[in-house]
């Protein structure tokens, strides 16, 4: 296991402040692995939990904490679908578009989401409340069609359930 280095108190470029608690959490993660780079995805998620997404400056800051190049961090950040490199709304709706959901009403659910939110995939509502994205099979196929809002999984969800569901996420 990697030895735990001391907190650096580093500040990224352009005034981006890595929250001290976040940096501490990253250092703790690093201790679980033979090499600090392994904490990269978790570090990105830590930043994202606080800011909602991962700005460029955070990439540089994470790279410094992990002791690797920013390009390596950026390569990872752009590979994984749940790391957001653009601002997202306060809540992210992930709608499953895989086969079992497709066979049980995904098209209708997706249409209803688009019309009720007034946005399509990759877009955020004007009030910054919701961002809509597709996701692979949520492993909830016995509750298809399924979707996630933030950390909560719902299914089966019909178009008629949506107003009530969405209301819970102000």
């Amino acid at each position: 296991m990697a030895t735990t280095p001391q907190t650096t108190g580093l500040i990224g470029s352009d005034g981006f402040h890595l929250h001290p608690a976040d940096e501490a959490a990253m250092l703790e993660e690093m201790a679980h692995y033979e090499q600090p780079q392994a904490a990269c995805i978790e570090a990105l998620k830590i930043v994202q939990r606080r800011h909602g997404w991962v700005p460029d400056e955070a990439i540089v800051a994470i790279a410094r904490v992990l002791g690797i190049g920013p390009a390596a961090v950026e390569g990872v950040a752009t590979f994984y679908s749940l790391i957001f490199r653009q601002p997202v709304g306060r809540h992210v709706v992930l709608v499953c578009d895989s086969s079992s959901c497709f066979l049980t009403g995904f098209d209708e659910l997706k249409r209803a989401l688009v019309s009720q939110l007034g946005i399509d995939y990759g877009q955020t509502t004007d009030d910054d409340r919701f961002t809509l994205l597709p996701v692979c099979c949520l492993g909830a196929c016995d509750g298809a069609p399924a979707l996630m809002i933030d950390a909560d999984t719902y299914g089966p969800v019909s178009a008629g359930d949506l107003p009530d569901l969405l209301e819970g996420y102000p």
């Binding site: 692995y33 392994a38 990269c40 995805i41 994984y80 749940l82 996701v135």
Partner: peptide, 27 residues
């Protein structure tokens, strides 16, 4: 044992891609 959580992408389930991902690389 530690829990290592991913950040999406089906390919992470392929065992060698999974190892790359575990090491903090592209999968």
């Amino acid at each position: 044992i530690a829990v290592h959580t991913g950040a999406g992408r089906y390919i992470c389930g392929e065992e060698t891609a999974l190892i790359n991902s575990l090491e903090g690389k592209r999968a």
